[in-house]
């Protein structure tokens, strides 16, 4: 796995609950610790920021959203096309769930780390972001880019 893809995944799993509870800063550990009793509402919202796109990029421009609020998306489903100063990329969903909000329309710039999308998920899965069973982690595929 490339340094870039690790960075992307690392940022993706920084999903946060936005329902007023404490931020899920270590979601995997929280899930293992059995956070279900902690999060007692039926659904929860999880916000994902624009992930680190590597190559020292700090922002990206929205080309086109491929999902809309209200859509039910699967993990790894393409969410949005973004353009950086170096290339265009398609971001796969880090999460299965219902899209609640998306940030930025075509042509809008978003900084790395700023909110990109908010999902609504059944509450009992909110605590285990990054370890959803069966599905593979979102792929920012490709082994290391070793240009010689």
């Amino acid at each position: 796995m490339s340094r870039q893809s690790q960075l992307v995944e690392a940022s993706w799993v920084r999903g946060r609950k936005t329902d007023g509870g404490p931020h899920c800063t270590n979601c995997e550990a929280a899930g293992r610790a059995g956070s279900n009793e902690y999060w007692s509402t039926a659904v929860a919202e999880i916000s994902f920021p624009l992930p680190d796109l590597g190559e020292g990029l700090i922002e990206a421009t929205v080309l086109e959203w491929l999902v809309s609020p209200g859509d039910q998306v699967e993990r790894n489903q393409p969410l949005v096309e973004m353009e950086t100063s170096k290339s265009a990329v398609e971001l796969p969903s880090p999460q299965a769930g219902k899209v609640v909000r998306i940030f930025g329309g075509a042509g809008d710039r978003i900084n790395v780390g700023e909110p990109l999308i908010v999902f609504e998920v059944p509450d009992n899965t909110a605590g285990i972001v990054g370890t959803v069973p069966k599905d593979e982690a979102p792929t920012r595929p490709g082994p290391p880019e070793r240009r010689t």
């Binding site: 096309e81 290339s87 398609e90 595929p141 490709g142 880019e145």
Partner: peptide, 10 residues
């Protein structure tokens, strides 16, 4: 590259 042109673009 294949990564930039075909993987990262979906």
């Amino acid at each position: 590259s294949s990564k930039l042109n075909w993987h990262d673009t979906g």
